[in-house]
């Protein structure tokens, strides 16, 4: 049984105020796949992500990670397996220094100090932030914060990486740097994003959410070539597929 499989079966979620955020979602993401979840604002992307590590519990349906259902007993292991990077890195970096933040997860796993140090060091090196280790998070730039936020998750050796709007708010250089970094990962990767050009570069498969339902699920290029589908879901072709605005 592989740890890297994400199965969502007939997932439905209704918030306490009666808002139906997700209606009957089903899909399976396999080992090593890189999948984008796209959709308009309020389509249910963030709600879906919060189900993947058990922060929200389904109202109806089931989420299985690596073959295990999400229950109180499996929760700690599933949270280690699914590394989640939030949209706002300020929410993720809460410790006094970058190093302590990256070491936070491994410390909670109860690893010996030597191993914690090694993992934190490797994770920081991987995202090119080794030199920031002793800095407090509020002294970092947006791009640096984002990379460190990824390191805080990598240090827990997750099998599945879930990222909410990874390129949001980054300058072109930092965005490019981040895309390069994410391309190198061999984890199962799940992204939500409005940066559709990033989706083309990083994800071979795309799931389109519309009003809490899966509207389409297939190869990214096919989906972006379906103009009608995109329009229905309040999306449009990525800029890189739209042709040159001057020659047109």
């Amino acid at each position: 049984m592989s740890h890297h499989i994400v199965e969502v079966k007939n997932l439905q979620h209704v918030y306490a105020d009666g808002t139906i955020a997700l209606k009957d979602l089903s899909f399976t993401i396999h080992h090593g796949e890189s999948v984008a979840i796209i959709g308009a604002n309020g389509a249910g992307k963030s709600t879906l992500l919060l189900h993947l590590n058990g922060y929200l519990a389904p109202t109806v349906g089931e989420v299985r990670i690596g073959g295990f259902p999400l229950t109180q007993e499996t929760l700690p292991e599933i949270r280690r397996t699914v590394g989640m990077v939030f949209q706002d890195p300020d929410d993720q970096l809460f410790m006094p220094t970058v190093y302590e933040d990256v070491a936070f997860g491994p410390c909670n796993l109860g690893l010996p100090e030597e191993e914690v140090r090694q993992r934190a060091g490797e994770a920081l090196e991987k995202v090119g932030a080794g030199h920031l280790a002793q800095k407090p998070p509020y002294h970092l730039s947006g791009g640096e914060k984002k990379r460190v936020a990824i390191a805080t998750v990598l240090s827990m050796s997750p099998d599945i990486l879930v990222m909410d709007e990874p390129t949001n708010g980054l300058d072109p250089f930092s965005r490019r740097q981040l895309i390069g970094l994410l391309k190198d990962f061999h984890h199962t990767r799940i992204f939500t994003s409005h940066d559709l050009d990033m989706v083309i570069e990083l994800c071979e498969r795309t799931i389109v959410l519309h009003q809490g339902e899966v509207k389409a699920d297939g190869p990214t290029i096919e989906i972006f070539n379906n103009a009608q589908l995109l329009a229905e879901c309040r999306l449009e072709k990525p800029l890189s597929m739209q042709g040159c605005p001057v020659c047109r």
Binding site: L50, N53, Y55, P76, R79, R80, M84, F86, D88, D90, D91, Q92, F94, F104, G105, N108, L109, T152, V153, M156
Partner: peptide, 14 residues
């Protein structure tokens, strides 16, 4: 924000 931070902590095994 406090809720999101708590979420980030819980997710990392706090």
């Amino acid at each position: 924000r406090a809720e999101r931070i708590h979420m980030a902590m819980v997710v990392r095994g706090f």
